[in-house]
């Protein structure tokens, strides 16, 4: 069982961050090596991003994070780069599912209350984000049970090895 509570430092981005920005097609088609892909995460928006990330950091963004392509390399490369979760006002649906399936926290909340460099604690058990730097608590709408169960196992691969189907959970 994975912890449903994590604390980390935030890197802030804007609205509509698409999966091409997270990991460009020119890299993702070439390899299954996520460490290699991790070096190019967010490269088209910030060429030094991968070097800035410390293990356990979060991304906070505006609306529609992860729009565009269905590439599961997007959440996987974020994880490989050290990012543990993404906080956003809203998410594109395929990315949201892929993130949960890879064990990446995806958290819907009012990210206007979070600035670059803030320290936050995400607690998906309680459904809240606490911005430790600013002393504000943000509400997180509950996830469907199936997603919580997948996240608890650290992703769909582990979930499936344990349960063998979606109906047995």
């Amino acid at each position: 069982m994975r912890a449903m509570r994590l604390t980390g430092r935030v890197h802030k981005f804007g609205d509509d961050i698409n999966t091409d920005y997270i990991i460009s097609g020119k890299y993702k088609f070439k390899t299954l090596d996520m460490q290699e892909l991790a070096r190019h995460v967010m490269e088209d928006l910030d060429s030094e991003f991968a070097q800035k990330v410390r293990p356990g950091d979060f991304i906070a963004a505006g609306k529609n994070f992860g729009c565009g392509s269905s590439r599961e390399q997007a959440p996987r490369a974020l994880l490989a780069c050290g990012i543990r979760g993404v906080l956003a006002k809203s998410f594109a649906r395929i990315f949201f599912r892929n993130a949960i399936n890879c064990g990446l926290f995806v958290v819907e909340c009012d990210t206007d209350r979070i600035e670059n460099g803030d320290e936050v604690t995400v607690d998906l058990e309680r459904g809240e984000v606490v911005n430790l730097t600013r002393g504000v608590t943000l509400f997180v709408p509950p996830l469907p049970q199936v997603m919580i169960d997948i996240l608890r196992e650290g992703g769909l691969v582990n979930y499936f090895k344990k349960y063998g189907s979606f109906e047995k959970a």
């Binding site: 565009g68 892929n98 769909l156």
Partner: peptide, 25 residues
């Protein structure tokens, strides 16, 4: 496992994009 899988709605199917691990499942 491609976001533009939604195309087949042109002939009245419900089709949608998923991720790679979902495709495996």
């Amino acid at each position: 496992a491609d976001s533009h899988t939604c195309t087949y709605g042109a002939i009245g199917a419900f089709s949608t994009g998923i991720g790679s691990t979902e495709l495996a499942v």
